[in-house]
């Protein structure tokens, strides 16, 4: 019961911070509100008994905020020049109503909070990992034993995606200077 209230308060906090991030005119305050969302998420992970996720979320959020502030600082801080057309807004609201109806039916069949499927079905992979993880892999932390042993190929794929994204970002940011030099030579 207690965890319900904590998660509820954190989610309301995150929703308010997200609304401020969406609605505020200044880009820098928008980015800072996004930081509030991320750190609220990290606290929620901590209360949901996921300490690894809380640590990773804090590290990722700090790096992300540094990138975003690098992108926004001393650039045009007055967004929203054009006005949204009414039919565009109507279409967006219609689409969101559709997603809401879908969400209602999707959550209808879901179990209650605090009663996961691993309590009901004893033969799930999660239960196998919990029962035999320490004995078979030697890792006391079951999350670590999953990402580095049972599903190590998944982690390999993750590293591949991460490095591809970083190479892509570097290529995008560096090509400008090279073409400039080429144009100057001509």
């Amino acid at each position: 019961m207690e965890i319900d209230i904590i998660i509820f308060v954190l989610l309301v906090f995150m929703a308010i911070a997200a609304l401020i991030a969406v609605e505020t005119k200044n880009l820098l305050s928008s980015v800072i509100s996004l930081g509030a969302v991320g750190f609220g998420l990290s606290m929620a992970f901590l209360f949901l008994r996921a300490p690894d996720l809380a640590i990773v979320q804090i590290a990722v959020e700090v790096v992300l905020l540094i990138f975003l502030i690098r992108a926004t600082i001393s650039r045009d801080t007055i967004p929203e020049t054009g006005r949204i057309r009414w039919w565009g807004l109507a279409f967006v609201l219609l689409l969101m109503a559709g997603v809401l109806v879908f969400g209602y039916f999707a959550f209808h069949d879901l179990g209650n909070f605090g009663e996961p499927i691993i309590s009901a079905v004893k033969s799930t992979p999660s239960n196998l990992y919990l029962r035999e993880g320490l004995e078979k892999t030697g890792a006391a932390n079951i999350v670590t034993s999953i990402i580095l042993d049972y599903r190590a190929y998944d982690t390999l794929g993750e590293a591949t995606v991460l490095f591809t994204a970083i190479i892509g970002a570097l290529a995008i940011l560096r090509s400008r200077t090279k073409t400039d030099k080429g144009e100057r030579k001509k």
């Binding site: 965890i3 300490p51 605090g114 996961p116 499927i117 309590s119 993880g133 932390n141 079951i142």
Partner: peptide, 12 residues
């Protein structure tokens, strides 16, 4: 979705 009432962190 994975939270269990009065659960502990998955560290054995």
């Amino acid at each position: 979705l994975g939270y269990k009432n009065d659960g502990i962190a998955p560290i054995n």
